[in-house]
Nucleic acid binder design. Structure first.
Lengths: 217, 217
DNA sequence: CACAACTTACTGACTTGTCAGTAAGTGGCT
DNA sequence: AGCCACTTACTGACAAGTCAGTAAGTTGTG
């Protein structure tokens, strides 16, 4: 401990900020980890594999992130930040625009199966016992549901109840995720078309409210 | 299969039929394995944990199944057989009955989260590289899509194209799976209500065909 | 007896994480 | 400018554990 001179709050302490190269290095590792965790899963992806991609040893990775779990947490945060940066300027749309955005996203996803796989694998894994990504995934779902539910209500201009909007919101998220898994396993599934079809169907049903037939009761 | 009867035809060699107790033992192990793989995933679930549930060592499990992968395969087969047995007598419905059956299943699933978790975890894991359950999951999706697509066409009485029916089928499967995951992570999600809502919505849209608005184009 | 159903004991491959040591920076002081 | 104190970014070795799978021995039963 600081014996000898109690330096009275040592004001001259180094104002250390990370070196310029370090931030980029950490970002490299995060991208590698996202890649590995995405294709193999968190539990099954090893630090050694992550390290190899950036040309260091697994101990080097641990030097930067302390533990495997912390690495995962920072991967998720990094992705969130990236997503936000992608949307910067083009403000996140509400109302009808949100649904158009969702369909556009599905169309784009066809060209980046790696990202989709990473999302699907991690989401599926997160429902196992005590998974470190569980809280993150749960929260993400909650936020998304809130936004979509609000958009449904906005499009309905007050005619749609909150319960119906919530139903529609979780259904829309569900169908997007579920279709992605099917598409990853079988290219025959038409991801964008099915996604648009389902979102339009659910939206239409929500707007019609109870004035529609319930043939399944 | 019923091998209740002792083998009448004993050729030269000893009765090669498994002992009566053995079949039940294997079934016990399969149920334990389904439990472990369901809650921890296949890769992360260990043979030791499976063995412990039936009071033997992991080597005992390997005696019966040879390898972990073979155990998984037999777990999946066992489940298929069980599902079929559950539906025996009450023939698998087609047409509208199928959709009612799907909604009923969602309602029942609320009371058996273990089964739902097992299905979700394994499905999510199956999209990782070279996963041994991949073929099984892919095939299961394909068969289900076919059945649902047929039912959509039947309900539409010839007015629905095969492409539209396929879209609706994958969307219905997707929404069911996706909602299950959200429900496992957050009890606030109303699984049966959302499922029924979405299936009705998708079915209605499919029956209306192209005579409906496409606000998201 | 012969064989099925195990157990015990062990191997080898992998895991994450710790630790000491090293080379290369970085900033302050003279 | 040159040196000192210190930090950063690693490496390589190793600890401690888990895992599937194998081989050989034991027990019980038809």
């Amino acid at each position: 401990m600081d014996d000898a001179v109690p330096p009275a709050a040592a004001p001259k302490r180094r104002a250390r900020q990370p070196r310029q190269a370090t931030t980029e290095r950490r970002a490299e590792i995060l991208r590698a980890a996202a890649n590995t965790f995405g294709s193999k899963g968190y539990k099954n992806g090893s630090l050694a594999e992550v390290a190899e991609q950036v040309g260091i040893t697994h101990a080097g990775v641990l030097h930067h992130f302390g533990s495997k779990e912390q690495l995962l947490v920072e991967v998720l945060e990094y992705r969130d930040k990236e997503d936000v940066r992608d949307l910067e300027g083009q403000h996140i749309p509400g109302g009808l625009g949100l649904f158009q955005h969702l369909v556009r996203t599905a169309r784009m996803n066809v060209d980046r199966p790696g990202i989709v796989q990473g999302y699907s694998v991690l989401t599926g894994e997160s429902v196992t016992e005590n998974h470190p990504a569980r809280a993150w995934v749960t929260d993400r779902f909650r936020v998304l549901r809130g936004e979509i539910s609000d958009a449904v209500i906005a499009v309905g201009e007050g005619t749609v109840s909150r319960e119906t909007a919530d139903c529609a919101a979780s259904a829309i998220i569900g169908v997007m995720d579920g279709l992605q898994v099917q598409w990853l396993l079988d290219e025959d599934v038409d991801l964008p078309t099915s996604t648009q079809f389902a979102i339009e169907a659910i939206l239409a049903a929500a707007l019609l409210g109870d004035d529609r037939p319930h043939p399944l009761d």
